[in-house]
Each structure stands twice: as structure tokens, then as C-alpha cells.
């Protein structure tokens, strides 16, 4: 247990040192150059604001968390479902996958106003932006994963009377083969989900109970409260990183016996 804590400490220490150095440079620069606080606040000031405006940030945190998690889970369900469907035949993949690639090229900021138009300026629209932005990495990676199954082994199972698309082949070979790819997609999407939710909140612009971190960023900048904008951005990043780390940890856990990389990371 102690050894384990020590190894965790050893692995995060370099990152923490960088953080401390960056904050120190920021502090020193503001000290020396003395910009107006609404142009560039000092770290101390941002920290004060975080504490004083904790209630607002907490509401924002909860709303953004909720929207990104819901968007992420829907994207996972739809993305994995679609990937399973497209993996049934080359024909289906050829017909639909190129259109799915379009998803990736649609800018989330551009579709957000449409969502607001169709579904109103509420939570659904925010979630939908998070959903849209996270769908493609999940779909593309799980499809690649399902395709990565050992074809010779699938042939050997075919010889024993189970078809390529049989439940046996899916459950014992193709789905397990796809897991490392799926988790790569989920990791990418975890960070994107938070970005999507924030973009959605900025466009939707709904405050009060529904205020997310994106809303607070806009709010802070219209009021020239740059320290508050900084605080909201910092909370957003913390949220994105936490989400990413949670998904990574879940992946390592599931893949413990799968992938050498996951296994050595555990050792």
C-alpha cells in the first residue's frame, strides 16, 4: 500500500513541479509587469475569486459535468451500436462510414445555434453539442477495433460452423478484440465531451440554475471580470482532466490482461 502510494507520488511529481513553476512564473510576471487586473490577473487574485465565487462555480461545475457525461454516454451507446452495425458487412461500412466522417468535419460551434433553434435554449441542446463532438472518435475507433479481430481465428471458428457474424464470434472474439481501440476512442472523447458542453453553454447562454462553466466564461468576460473567467476555465480544465483520467483508469482496469501497455503500466 505504502509502496503503491510512493510509486504514484513518484509518477505525478514531475507534473506537479511543472505546475508549480508555471504558477510561479505567472505570479512573478504579473508582479514585474503589473498589467491591469482585467487584462491579466495574478494567481492570487484568481484563487481569491475561486473561493469567493465558489457557489457560482459549483453550480457551473455540476451543470457542465452533467451535460458532458450525458452527452458522452449517449455518444458511447450510439457510436458503439453504429460500429457494431457497420461491422456486419463491408458493404454497410462502405455505404455509411464516409458519411460518418462528415461528423468529424462539422464544427460544433456552427451546429450549436441550430440545436438551439430546434430544441430550444436548454440543457438538451448543450448535451447534443457534447454528443455530436464525441460521437465520431468513439464510432471510428470501435469500428477499427471490431475490424482488428484475428481473421484466421475467425476462419477457424467458421470451420466449426459459426458464422463470421454469429453471436459467438462477436462475444468471444470481435468485441473483446475491439476493446483497446474502444477505450482509445473513449479517452479522446472524454476530454472532448467537456469542450462540447462548454461550447454548447456559451451558445445557449442560459444562466441561473442552468448556468454551466461556459456560461460563466461569457458572463465573466462581459463584466470584464477576467479573474472569474480564469477561474471558470481552470475548473473546466480540471473537469476535463478528471473525466479523462477516470476513463483511462476504467480502461486500464478492463484491459488489465489484454494489452501489454496496460499491464506494464499497472506493474
Amino acid at each position: 500500500m505504502i509502496a503503491r502510494l510512493r510509486s504514484i507520488a513518484a509518477s505525478v511529481a514531475p507534473q506537479l513541479i511543472v505546475l508549480v513553476v508555471v504558477i510561479f512564473v505567472w505570479w512573478a510576471a504579473v508582479r514585474v509587469l503589473d498589467p491591469k487586473p482585467f487584462i491579466f490577473p495574478s494567481p492570487g487574485r484568481v484563487l481569491d475569486t475561486t473561493v469567493n465565487d465558489f457557489d457560482r462555480l459549483w453550480i457551473g461545475f455540476k451543470n457542465t459535468l452533467y451535460a458532458s457525461v450525458v452527452g458522452f454516454f449517449f455518444a458511447t451507446a450510439v457510436g458503439v451500436g453504429a460500429a457494431l452495425f457497420l461491422s456486419l458487412s463491408r458493404m454497410l461500412e462502405r455505404a455509411f462510414f464516409p458519411w460518418a466522417v462528415l461528423l468529424q468535419t462539422v464544427p460544433a460551434v456552427a451546429v450549436a445555434p441550430l440545436y438551439v433553434l430546434w430544441w430550444g435554449p436548454g440543457r438538451q441542446s448543450v448535451m447534443l453539442v457534447a454528443f455530436t463532438i464525441t460521437l465520431f472518435p468513439i464510432l471510428a475507433n470501435s469500428l477499427a477495433g471490431l475490424r482488428s479481430a484475428d481473421a484466421a481465428l475467425v476462419d477457424l471458428i467458421r470451420l466449426r460452423g459459426r458464422r463470421r457474424n454469429s453471436w459467438f464470434t462477436f462475444s468471444k472474439i470481435r468485441i473483446p478484440s475491439s476493446l483497446p481501440y474502444l477505450f482509445t476512442g473513449l479517452r479522446i472523447s472524454a476530454g472532448l465531451a467537456v469542450i462540447g458542453a462548454i461550447v454548447g453553454e456559451i451558445v445557449v447562454g442560459r444562466g441561473g440554475d442552468e448556468a454551466g462553466l461556459g456560461y460563466w466564461v461569457t458572463f465573466g468576460s462581459t463584466q470584464l471580470r477576467t479573474d472569474f473567467v480564469f477561474a471558470a476555465i481552470a475548473v473546466s480544465s480540471a473537469l476535463g482532466i478528471t473525466f479523462f483520467l477516470l476513463v483511462s483508469a476504467a480502461g486500464n482496469r478492463v484491459l488489465r490482461h489484454w494489452h501489454e501497455s496496460a499491464r506494464t503500466a499497472e506493474a
Partner: peptide
């Protein structure tokens, strides 16, 4: 049927 590679499931 045995191939050149073992074709085992890594998990």
C-alpha cells in the same frame, strides 16, 4: 488446422 502463427487470444 494450424497456421504459421499461433493465433491465440491475448486476453
Amino acid at each position: 488446422y494450424v497456421f504459421q502463427d499461433a493465433h491465440l487470444l491475448p486476453w
